[in-house]
Design a protein around this nucleic acid. Structure first.
Lengths: 224, 224
DNA sequence: ACCTGAACACCGTTCAAGT
DNA sequence: ACCTGAACACCGTTCAAGT
């Protein structure tokens, strides 16, 4: 079905874009555990070895996917431009825009982007040290913090803190989604909504964390 | 060398404790990628299938390891008692103890515990939904926050926020350690100490994040 | 109580060769 | 420019059987 074999001939010919699209489809439908090079090749109607013409190894493939997951236009993004420099600025005259609102919006947009693909947070997390997508996200968060009265290094560290929290939270969230759908429930972690909503994983716990960080920054700004 | 074959006989007999100790040795010396069931079996002088008498599957093995990594006595822990209830209280009369100091100490202790094993943060993160170790850590953080003037649900959410930040930060940190030791450097992420120390990954960026969170909590406490 | 032996159904990656 | 075919060196897990 996704093989897309050329009408008459045998060997299907693909671009890197095709490969990434197919990989992301598998990721979303079956999860990271099922995203193997062999399964990906099969979904493209191609031999596994063919993938290594497009990509040097699986790790790079995952990094490219992470890049795409994170590069969807967020709250500050212009729709259609998927890649923007990390230090992108929003509208030049930022007067009247509350930086806390901007940072909050960016954080929520990043969470949505991660939630848009199954295991999105794990893919992006596992790829952190390779740069690319994660750096893009941190750049956007840092840009959103322009306006807070912070030294450049403090702004960078604050953006990193936000990013780490977001990845940690969403990953946990997606692990629970998967565990629940598999019926696997850990002893302490009750699956019934009663306990879930009353505890650290209820709705709003993400916003709580973001606001906590932003409150900390605001307190710092006041002390200068 | 680690086979520990009984002097005279053929089949080596082991306890779950032996298995976990051998697994943690591999983890620390060779990393998570090399911690396979087959390699673990070989290090114990046993067939791979023998491991499945001690443990139902690899995921459970990793969860048990995560539990041990996290359960080292932290700042508030009594040395020797490795397992304590999640809602453990520290000394009853907490008057005079600054909760911010307690939470900070607990966060630093957790980071040290994660750093004590190669890929520690990834192992614990991947095991979050299974409860065990991660829950223990969150419980200790929540306990340390007793004294901050917070509603119980807020305290739980704050502990979760701290935990997610810590895992995200240390995982990133350990990824960089491994990337550096392999000589793999990402385009943007310069390996030279000049850029590293000037940015979000310099020394102190962990403390910065923790303090940011604690400042946010302090600001909240003031508003009540 | 703890392990062997053999098998099943997979992996990622390389490399010469094809078109 | 993009793919095949065949191979290499691995995986996690199951299960009957042994002691």
């Amino acid at each position: 079905m996704t093989t897309l074999d050329t009408a008459g001939g045998r060997p299907a010919r693909h671009s890197l874009d095709d490969v990434l699209a197919a990989a992301m489809a598998i990721l979303d439908e079956n999860g990271l555990a099922d995203l193997t090079m062999r399964r990906l090749a099969a979904s493209l109607g191609v031999q596994p070895s063919a993938l290594y013409w497009h990509v040097p190894n699986k790790q790079t493939l995952l990094a490219l996917i992470a890049d795409r997951i994170v590069s969807v236009p967020g709250a500050a993004g212009v729709p259609g431009t998927s890649t923007r420099p990390g230090t992108a600025t929003r509208s030049p005259d930022a007067t009247g825009i509350d930086w806390q609102h901007a940072a909050r919006a960016e954080a929520l947009a990043l969470r949505d982007a991660l939630l848009a693909y199954r295991d999105g947070a794990e893919v992006v997390s596992s790829t952190l040290a390779l740069g690319l997508g994660a750096d893009d996200a941190r750049g956007r968060l840092a840009a959103a913090l322009t306006g807070a009265d912070l030294a450049p290094s403090a702004r960078e560290m604050a953006a990193a803190t936000l990013l780490h929290f977001i990845l940690g939270h969403v990953w946990h969230e997606q692990q629970r989604l998967q565990a629940d759908s598999l019926g696997v429930v850990a002893p302490g972690q009750a699956a019934d909504p009663l306990e879930a909503s009353a505890s650290h994983h209820g709705p709003g716990s993400f916003e709580f964390g973001v606001d906590l960080l932003l409150d900390g920054l605001a307190a710092r700004a006041l002390r200068r």
